[in-house]
């Protein structure tokens, strides 16, 4: 299983990072992503769902429905063991890349 590649426009690694902290549903993921990136990452909200479904298809996350009183039930996503491993590898790879980029750019 290869880790998601931010350099290919796939923000699956960011989703794995969020879901690595706790189980979340789509709307919550969008809100967290926007809040933590101080709205720098502000893609159309719907784009998070194909990305989540791809992670699910690839076995990196699993989903379950949770009933909510007075509101539509929610589909929560959590990392699988493979997802945790992909997150660890992806995070290391990303840090290596940013360190190298900092050295080149003098950050």
């Amino acid at each position: 299983m290869t880790a998601p590649r931010l350099d290919r426009g796939d923000y699956g690694l960011l989703l794995l990072g969020l879901l690595g902290e706790r189980e979340m549903y789509g709307y919550e993921v969008v809100s967290e992503l926007r809040a933590r990136s101080t709205a720098v990452i502000d893609l159309p909200e719907g784009t998070v769902y194909p990305a989540l479904r791809r992670l699910e298809r690839d076995g990196l996350v699993r989903a379950r429905w949770v009933d909510v009183e007075g509101a539509p039930r929610r589909r929560y996503y959590a990392l699988t063991t493979a997802g945790e491993r992909a997150l660890t590898e992806g995070r290391e790879s990303w840090h290596r890349f940013t360190r190298a980029a900092d050295q080149v750019l003098g950050g």
């Binding site: 789509g26 709307y27 909200e45 719907g46 769902y49 509101a71 539509p72 589909r75």
Partner: peptide, 14 residues
């Protein structure tokens, strides 16, 4: 059905 419900739920919350 599953996807429809999920998308509908997100938009309803928004």
């Amino acid at each position: 059905e599953d996807l429809t419900e999920e998308l509908f739920g997100h938009i309803a919350e928004r």
